[in-house]
Design a protein around this nucleic acid. Structure first.
Length: 523
DNA sequence: ATATTGATTGTTCGA
DNA sequence: TCGAACAATCAATAT
């Protein structure tokens, strides 16, 4: 505490608030002055209090006496010889009770009693006063120079005179303010000016935010639809949505809307909105990552329309900085779920023409698909091209096709290529029914696949690589029969049985070789 | 009208 | 109904 210094200041300058205040107030203490009042303020108040209040051992001061003494000391002409040294004042701080003598108590009552009456009177008068409701987020107006000064000095006054009432402190502060030199006042005024600039900035930003509010809604198009949420507990969705919600929107850019806009679709401008919304009441869940929003890219989107589930991942990097496909539970689980949901719709739907499967509509034009197909665009791992797995499942014959993806990992522009490689062709047979369970297994295997697509094709591939023999034989290993021609296979098999066996063996071998125990659940 | 601080009073709500 | 928590009010003064 700067008690000694205050004494020195007064002794040397002969004034109360002269050099001391100037010296310390010139210090830039903008950020701390409110919490820690300027040292010199404390000094001055200490001496002021000691000189004025403690001199008479008053906790309540006679107004005229106070004024005269304040005027005397603050006027700067006379030095008040402190009866008590500042140190004495500080060390055992005079407790309110101990400092109160009987006479003081009388003075206290004499002064405070009428005050209470006044309070009661003004209470009724100002009962119906200001009714202001403010937005808590609205920036606070900068304090006036006097308010800053009051805040700084009142603590010192209170410290020296704990029993001083608010009115007394206010009068003391006002006297000090009056006696404050213009330079010292300028210090506070500069603070106020600086705070005002900040206030204007904050106010502008606040108003801007008021103008543009982000609308973020995520909901199922059909809540009654018993479909597990595609992206429920995703570690990606929550942060991204929160980011979108908290991200300030500039007035020029439209609010980011993640919503089902079926009731009132907005006038879609030429650039399609970043989300793919299913036209049918099934499910629409949107992910917009922060990176994508900032880059203005089309975000991850999932749409489902009459059995067609489209997963368009965002760029690989997520908010965690991990590739999307590495998250657990990641898109694998979600995709599987959506696939399962789509599977249940399959039996009712008729297989589409092959041409349609090979040339699906553009992603932004995912009009109601006529075939029960599932298009899954998985995010490419780094240095890997995007893998596009297209499962076209239909009642007999069942087909699963893997389409090698284009090399450019640009989900928003990628189109499904017409080139397809038939891998497994399973005609309906009693031995291998195309049950949903089986489909699910196949699907999950494909979903969990994250290795380069080439390997998939190679492993899953049905046709033997080569070995052109002069006498054609059935493709199934161990079968020596001559293949027969059928509409279900291309002159490779001798019978339906061989087709089934061959496919089963191939698939099981692929599963075993592929997973090596990592997918023990797949049988 | 509003700000300073802190005591007091009034209101609301849960136990 | 009671107590806790919160809100409103008031003081003197300056802006």
């Amino acid at each position: 505490m700067p008690v000694e210094m205050s004494h020195e200041v007064i002794e040397q300058t002969g004034g109360l608030l002269g050099a001391g205040l100037t010296m310390d107030l010139d210090h830039p203490i903008v950020t701390t002055y409110s919490a820690n009042p300027p040292v010199t303020i404390d000094v001055s108040m200490t001496d002021l209090s000691s000189g004025l209040l403690a001199h008479n051992q008053l906790t309540t001061i006679d107004q005229s006496e106070l004024s005269s003494q304040l005027g005397l000391s603050l006027g700067g002409g006379t030095i008040l010889p402190p009866v008590q040294s500042p140190e004495d004042h500080l060390s055992p701080t005079p407790s309110p009770t101990s400092s109160l003598h009987d006479e003081d108590m009388e003075d206290f009552r004499r002064i405070t009693a009428p005050k209470n009456v006044v309070v009661e009177q003004t209470k009724k008068q100002k009962a119906s006063k200001k009714r202001k409701k403010k937005d808590p987020n609205e920036p606070q107006k900068p304090l006036s120079a006097y308010a800053l000064f009051f805040r700084d000095t009142q603590a010192a006054i209170k410290g020296q005179n704990p029993n001083a009432t608010f009115g007394e402190v206010s009068r003391i502060v006002a006297s000090m303010w009056d006696s404050l030199g213009e330079e010292q006042k300028q210090v506070y005024k500069r603070k106020t000016e600086a705070a005002k600039k900040e206030y204007l900035k904050a106010l502008a930003l606040y108003k801007e935010n008021q103008m543009s509010q982000v609308v973020v809604e995520t909901m199922d198009l059909d809540p009654s639809h018993d479909t597990p949420a595609l992206l429920p507990e995703s570690p990606v969705l929550s942060p991204t949505v929160a980011t979108a919600a908290s991200m300030p929107q500039s007035a020029s850019s439209p609010p980011t809307t993640i919503a089902n806009q079926a009731p009132t679709p907005p006038p879609a401008p030429t650039p399609p909105p970043p989300q793919v919304v299913s036209p049918t009441p099934s499910i629409a869940k949107i992910i917009i990552s922060k990176q994508m929003l900032q880059a203005g890219q089309i975000p991850t989107s999932i749409s489902m329309s009459q059995g067609m589930v489209t997963v368009i991942p965002a760029t690989v990097v997520t908010s965690r900085g991990l590739p999307l496909h590495q998250l657990q539970p990641g898109p694998q689980t979600r995709v599987t779920r959506s696939v399962q949901a789509a599977m249940q719709m399959l039996p009712r739907l008729q297989p589409p023409p092959l041409q349609q499967m090979q040339q699906p509509p553009r992603l932004q034009q995912m009009a109601p698909a006529q075939q029960p197909s599932i298009t899954i665009l998985q995010p490419p791992p780094p240095l890997q091209s995007m893998q596009k797995v297209r499962l076209s499942v239909q009642p007999p014959p069942l087909q699963i096709k893997i389409i090698p993806p284009p090399l450019q990992p640009q989900p928003q522009t990628v189109q499904v290529q017409a080139q397809t490689i038939p891998i497994i062709s399973l005609p309906t047979s009693p031995e291998v029914p195309a049950s949903p369970e089986h489909l699910e297994v196949l699907t999950e295997v494909v979903q969990e696949e994250s290795s380069p697509p080439q390997m998939d094709v190679q492993l899953v591939g049905v046709s033997p690589p080569h070995s052109p023999s002069p006498q054609p034989r059935c493709v199934r290993s161990g079968c020596e029969n001559t293949p027969v021609e059928s509409k279900d296979w291309d002159n490779e098999y001798c019978s339906n049985e061989c087709v089934v066996k061959h496919c089963r063996d191939t698939f099981m071998a692929w599963v075993a070789a592929r997973n090596q125990g990592t997918l023990a659940s797949v049988k």
